[in-house]
Amino acid sequence: MLLKDLFAVTMLLSIYGLLSATFFVAMDAVDVAFTEASVGAGISTLLLLVVISVTGRRERRVRHKPYAALFVVILTSMLLVFGTSDMPYFGSADAPIHNHVAPRYLNDSMQEINVPNIVTAVLASYRAFDTFGEVVVIFTAGIGVLALMSVSSKALSKSQPLNRPRGLYEQHLVIRIVAKTLFPFIFLFALYVQFHGDFGPGGGFQAGVIFAAAFILYAMLFGLDAATKVIKPAVIELLAALGVLLYGSVGIVTLLNGGNFFDYDYLLADPIAGQHLGILIIELGVGITVTCVMIMICFGFSLRRRAYEQKVAIRPKEGAV
């Protein structure tokens, strides 16, 4: 990358995310495409932009130590090319992955779980524990960001609104009105994605990102203060924890009913109905946690940035060891 402008690099990364999402559609991975589009082209771009606004968009130095890096990269790529030369060809139906384990998902999941979207069946039931791990990862990131970025409440109460315009809305009436009429539709779409994951692409994670995007849009248009009034940061934290607990409690209930962890058959008398109920609740848990963590992270960054601009957040505690 020869570009020195970090803003341009971020935009390129965003385009890359979008392109890979379209590639995933071409590869039949619609759920993955949905997620990659919302993450690669959405949330990660947003976060990068916020960070660049703190750190400055210009890179100062030319790159260095390219030779060691080149050596590592060439070695790794040679190994990879060597290793992949034995692999089954692209699209070949007789590759091992299409003949072991996966056929059961394709052939039997309709009888066992009765959810048309097989990807949802796999991640919410067959491999529900992985997805639980995923929710915990997201929660960990949220708490980690809070631990790093949270500005002490004392510093916040002292902070005054900035001199510059507080939100776009004061300047742009049109944007404000258009956005206001858009919110119901965004929420409706998010709800659709949340509850339609059984039948088509979508599910808790994607819905959570859309929900979060709506809130972030609100914060961008009406100012951070207005947004934190709508939902208090402390409430968001609790909700994020609640999502994880909701997911886990499905497992606890199945345990108490005499099944193994996440064995939804034990939720209700009818196993199929149990599977449906289990998937519904865990997707809800995923949705809640993802929404809250995304909002938490974005608010955390923005509040920190504001405090940084006012030079109140940084206490001169460094250098004590």
């Binding site: 991975a29 759920d31 993955v32 997620t35 990659e36 993450v39 690669g40 949330i43 990660s44 992955i97 299409h98 384990v101 996966a102 998902y105 394709l106 097989i118 990807v119 069946a121 796999v122 991640l123 491999r127 992985d130 997805t131 791990g133 995923e134 990862v137 997201i138 960990t140 990131a141 994670f205």
Partner: peptide
């Protein structure tokens, strides 16, 4: 094959975290 899709969904989330 749906399994890699499910795996990568998890991996994307790990990545953004």
């Amino acid at each position: 094959n749906p399994l890699p899709h499910a795996l990568i969904l998890t991996a994307i989330v790990v990545g953004i975290s």
